[in-house]
Simulated scan of single mutants.
Amino acid sequence: MKLRFEDNTLRLRLSAEEVATFGETGQIASHVPLAPGPDGTLTYALQRAPDNSTAAAETLRVAYLPGRLTVLVPETIARNWVASEEIGLSATLHVADATELRILVEKDLGCRH
């Protein structure tokens, strides 16, 4: 799974295998060692959120703890996305006064010719 930040945009791109794993297990995570020791790793994840949870709220959400960034996708949206030809999911969140974060989750399926 690829993670990209650009200005106020967070983008995750998943290979076909990762999309399948996400569909089966409801989550997928990657780890990037940034410094020595147990606190020196950044974990970023994509996770299904039950539709009845406050995390679902009918749109993509972000949960952040030091060293862990999780994009939460409501269960119904996640299941529909995995099973369809739809390439991407997106949402814009208000994260602070007059500050927005755009979230993109995309299938990275390569060229289809």
Results as ranks from 00 to 15, higher is better:
residue 4 R to L: 08
residue 11 R to I: 01
residue 14 L to A: 13
residue 15 S to K: 13
residue 20 A to T: 11
residue 21 T to R: 11
residue 23 G to R: 12
residue 25 T to K: 15
residue 25 T to W: 06
residue 26 G to L: 10
residue 27 Q to E: 12
residue 28 I to C: 10
residue 28 I to N: 09
residue 30 S to I: 00
residue 31 H to F: 09
residue 32 V to G: 04
residue 35 A to S: 05
residue 36 P to T: 13
residue 42 L to Y: 07
residue 47 Q to T: 12
residue 48 R to F: 01
residue 49 A to Q: 08
residue 51 D to W: 13
residue 52 N to E: 15
residue 53 S to C: 08
residue 54 T to V: 07
residue 56 A to K: 12
residue 57 A to Y: 01
residue 57 A to C: 05
residue 59 T to M: 08
residue 59 T to P: 00
residue 60 L to S: 03
residue 61 R to T: 06
residue 62 V to D: 04
residue 62 V to P: 07
residue 62 V to R: 04
residue 62 V to S: 05
residue 66 P to F: 07
residue 66 P to N: 04
residue 66 P to L: 04
residue 68 R to A: 09
residue 71 V to F: 12
residue 71 V to M: 14
residue 72 L to M: 15
residue 72 L to P: 01
residue 75 E to I: 01
residue 75 E to T: 09
residue 75 E to H: 13
residue 75 E to Y: 07
residue 77 I to R: 07
residue 79 R to P: 00
residue 80 N to T: 11
residue 81 W to F: 04
residue 82 V to T: 06
residue 85 E to W: 03
residue 86 E to D: 07
residue 87 I to F: 01
residue 88 G to W: 00
residue 89 L to N: 05
residue 89 L to T: 03
residue 90 S to L: 05
residue 91 A to F: 03
residue 93 L to V: 04
residue 93 L to I: 04
residue 98 A to I: 03
residue 99 T to L: 14
residue 99 T to N: 10
residue 100 E to P: 01
residue 103 I to E: 02
residue 104 L to V: 08
residue 105 V to P: 01
residue 106 E to L: 10
residue 107 K to G: 05
residue 111 C to I: 09
residue 111 C to W: 08
